[in-house]
C-alpha cells in the first residue's frame, strides 16, 4: 500500500498537505451542519493521547501476576474484573483475557478491520492495522513473530485470536523469571504494549526504562 512504502512517485509532502486541507474542510462543513463540535474533537484526541493507553493494560497484567484472586476473576470474567479498575469504555465493552503458558503463546489480530482493546491498550499501532499484519498473523504467526524479534521455545504452540466480532482480547504474558522480589508498581514497567497483543514478551528485570 502506498502509505507503507516510500516509493510512490508523487511528492509525499503535498499529499499530506492535501489531506490536511481535506480534513479541515470536512470539519468545517460538519461543524456548520451541527454534526460535530471542534471542542469535542479536541477532547477525544486528548483522551487517547494522555489518558487511555497501554499503561492501563500493564496495570491489569501486573495485578494478575501478583493477586491470585484477581487473576481468577480476570480469567472467568475479564470485562467485570477490568471494570473494577475503572478501565471500561469504547472498544473494551466485551473483554476476554488470554493467558500465555509454557505450552501456549497467544497472539491477537483483526483480519477484517482493526478491532483492538482500546479501553486497556489505547489506539492500535499502525502495524496492527496494516495489511501485512492482518493478512499474515493467521497464516504464519511464527514468521510474523520473528519480525518482532520473538522466537518461541520448542514445544510452545501458538493460538491466534482473530477478533471478528465485538470481543476484545488482552494477552496476559507469563511473569518473567527473576521478578519474585519486585513490587506490582515495578512489574507494570515490564509489561510492554506488544506483550499484551502477543507480538512481544515482557521486559526482563533491569531492562525497563
Amino acid at each position: 500500500m502506498p502509505h507503507d512504502h516510500h516509493d510512490h512517485d508523487h511528492d509525499h509532502g503535498s499529499e499530506l498537505d492535501d489531506m490536511t486541507a481535506r480534513v479541515m474542510a470536512l470539519e468545517t462543513l460538519l461543524t456548520e451542519k451541527g454534526i460535530v463540535q471542534p471542542a469535542a474533537l479536541d477532547a477525544i484526541i486528548e483522551t487517547y493521547e494522555t489518558q487511555v493507553g497501554p499503561r492501563r493494560g500493564a496495570e491489569v497484567v501486573a495485578r494478575a501476576w501478583t493477586d491470585p484472586d484477581f487473576r481468577d476473576w480476570l480469567e472467568k470474567d475479564a470485562t467485570a474484573a477490568i471494570a473494577s479498575m475503572d478501565y471500561t469504555g469504547r472498544q473494551g465493552e466485551h473483554m476476554m483475557a488470554v493467558f500465555n503458558t509454557p505450552e501456549r503463546h497467544n497472539m491477537v489480530v483483526c483480519t477484517l478491520c482493526s478491532c483492538y482493546p482500546w479501553a486497556v491498550l489505547g489506539l492500535p499501532p499502525v502495524w496492527y492495522k496494516s495489511t501485512p499484519y492482518r493478512a499474515r498473523a493467521v497464516r504464519e504467526p511464527r514468521a510474523v513473530l520473528a519480525e518482532f524479534g520473538v522466537t518461541l521455545p520448542e514445544g510452545q504452540s501458538v493460538r491466534v485470536w482473530d477478533s471478528t466480532a465485538e470481543m476484545r482480547y488482552l494477552v496476559v504474558p507469563m511473569r518473567p523469571e527473576g521478578t519474585e522480589a519486585m513490587t506490582r508498581e515495578q512489574l507494570i514497567d515490564l509489561v510492554t504494549r506488544d506483550s499484551m497483543i502477543g507480538t512481544g514478551l515482557p521486559l526482563s528485570p533491569g531492562a525497563s526504562a
Binding site: 483480519t111 502495524w127 496494516s130 501485512p132 493478512a135 499474515r136 519480525e147 518482532f148
Partner: peptide, 11 residues
C-alpha cells in the same frame, strides 16, 4: 486473512 503479497510488517 491468509492473503499473500503484502510484504513485511516492519513494526
Amino acid at each position: 486473512g491468509g492473503m499473500h503479497g503484502f510484504g513485511p510488517v516492519d513494526p
